[in-house]
Design a protein around this nucleic acid. Structure first.
Length: 430
RNA sequence: GGAGACUUCGCCUAGUCUGGUCUAUGGCGCCGCACUGCUAAUGCGGUUGGGGUCUUAAAGCCCCUCCCGGGUUCGAAUCCCGGAGUCUCCGCCA
């Protein structure tokens, strides 16, 4: 949610930032409507407040008269005005509802250094390592099958198209990744959270997933979830929602937390060549890091989180790059997003394993998460940042492909060997 | 799943039966000031959150906020209806 006051005071700045993401005509239309609704809202509030004030005064005068024993048996006018107040309140309700709708559909303002346009305008800003030389590249699906790491067929049998099942050493590798990340985040001072996977709709709204992506998540049917619950598409939603409607103690900021959950998404499972296997599915594992910070801490926190996530990829010995996303390719709630993309030898492309973003106060405003200004009594919205660290189901294929050996085995990254229980993944003997 | 008790401005709490001087009590904590070799103690004052209005700004003024949403009433923390949550007991269960 954008700051209404900013729209009132500096509409032009808001408009030009939004134009990086939206068609200028659409921006003008939205801002015109918002300004008009805002005017109506304030004028209605003025009328209603004045009316209420009058009624309160009357009631108080009547009470005083009653105490003095001079009250008429019938108090102030019974019917007529109540109608009028109800009418005004009804109008206000409609205006506010509409204002909320329009406001909540507006995306965040991209940061100054974020360029307009889509994917094609993303800019690679850093490269780590280089593609390993592999003579005969096997893709991760082939490797996972031959080494019996993932059972795609039985996964589909269980969950339908778009699901898979990790098996044997594959399950251990996936689990080793999750656990190694957990240890790294704890060591970096993040608090470990294991949240519910089923969230109330209010959490989806706060994170900015709703209303826009309402249809992209799994909802429980109305009978079992009268208040509206859905399976979280990322634990970002849970971490943010956990602090909804709270005023955070400034001394605790920056507040760092991370969570591991599977992520459930309805998006169509890919059958393109570069989205085979575990690259895109309806359920995947991800560890998510999150920070609530003072506005002035945000920039440093973003870089801090990026570097932290990148260290994990480096620790696994994988070749990757960092890209600054153009406005149109980043999610709507974010002011700035950088992706960490890992090299996939089979497709010759880089695939996102982490997305690290700074939301400014956009999510905090939707979720009403604030801090008290030191000294002053003002409350202000915190800034939020989130980043995958990392999406294991994307890393898993990257490891298989980048660490594959000429004989068809896969060398396990050193940091995972204890947890996987072997140095090298080879086909099971029976 | 059933029954009962409960939810008050950071925490604890008075007030709810019997609607109006509740514009919400007191304690703790916190902030400021005073006193004091320092600390402590003590005294005085302040301390829910949101919105509107005015203003360069602050202050002020007004409205909302006693879990949430409706209702009754001239008037609701208080009465009625619906919902959420917490606790206790019972039932069921990994």
């Amino acid at each position: 949610m954008l700051d209404m006051e900013l729209i009132r005071k500096d509409r032009d700045a808001v408009a030009s930032a939004l134009a990086k993401r939206l068609d200028p005509g659409e921006v003008t239309r939205a801002l015109d409507e918002i300004e008009e609704l805002d005017r109506q809202r304030r004028s209605l509030i003025g009328e209603i407040d004045a009316e209420r004030q009058r009624r309160k005064a009357e009631a108080r005068a009547y009470a005083a008269a009653k105490r003095a024993g001079t009250a008429p048996e019938q108090g102030p006018d019974p019917e007529a005005e109540r109608k009028q107040l109800a009418e005004l309140e009804g109008q206000l309700g409609e205006v506010q509802e509409r204002l909320r709708t329009v406001m909540s559909e507006l995306p965040n303002l991209p940061a100054d250094d974020v360029v307009p346009g889509g994917k094609e305008n993303n800019r690679v800003v850093k490269v780590f390592g280089e593609p390993p030389a592999i003579e005969r590249v096997r893709d991760h699906v082939e490797l996972a099958r031959s080494l019996r790491l993932v059972d795609f067929d039985r996964g589909v049998k269980l969950g339908g198209s778009g699901f898979w099942m990790y098996t044997g050493l594959g399950a251990r590798l996936e689990w080793a990744l999750v656990n190694w990340f957990v240890d790294q985040h704890v060591a970096a001072g993040y608090e470990f959270l294991l949240p519910p996977h089923l969230l109330l709709d209010s959490a989806g709204f706060a994170a900015g997933q709703f209303p826009k992506f309402y249809d992209d998540v799994y909802h429980l049917d109305r009978d079992s979830a009268p208040r509206g619950q859905f399976l979280l598409p990322t634990s970002e939603t849970a971490i943010l929602g956990a602090y909804q409607d709270e005023i955070l103690d400034t001394a605790t900021l920056p507040l760092r937390a991370f969570a591991y959950t599977p992520c459930y998404r309805r998006e169509s499972a890919g059958s393109h060549s570069d989205e085979r296997g575990t690259v895109r599915g309806h359920q995947f594992n991800k560890v998510e890091i999150f920070q609530f910070v003072l506005p002035e801490q945000a920039e440093a926190a973003l870089e801090d989180m990026l570097v932290h996530a990148e260290r994990l990829v480096e620790g696994l010995g994988l070749h990757y790059r960092r890209s600054l996303l153009a406005a149109g390719d980043a999610s709507a709630s974010m002011r700035k997003t950088l992706d960490i993309e890992v090299w996939m030898p089979s497709t010759g492309k880089y695939k996102e394993v982490s997305s690290v973003s700074w939301a400014g106060d956009y999510q905090a405003r939707r979720a009403s998460i604030r801090y008290r200004e030191p000294g002053g009594k003002q409350t202000r919205f915190v800034h939020t940042l989130n980043g995958s660290a990392l999406a294991t189901s994307r890393l898993f294929p990257a490891i298989l492909e980048q660490c594959q050996q000429p004989d068809g085995s896969v060398l396990v990254p050193e940091v995972l060997r204890d947890r996987v229980g072997t140095d090298r993944l080879v086909p099971p003997t029976r």
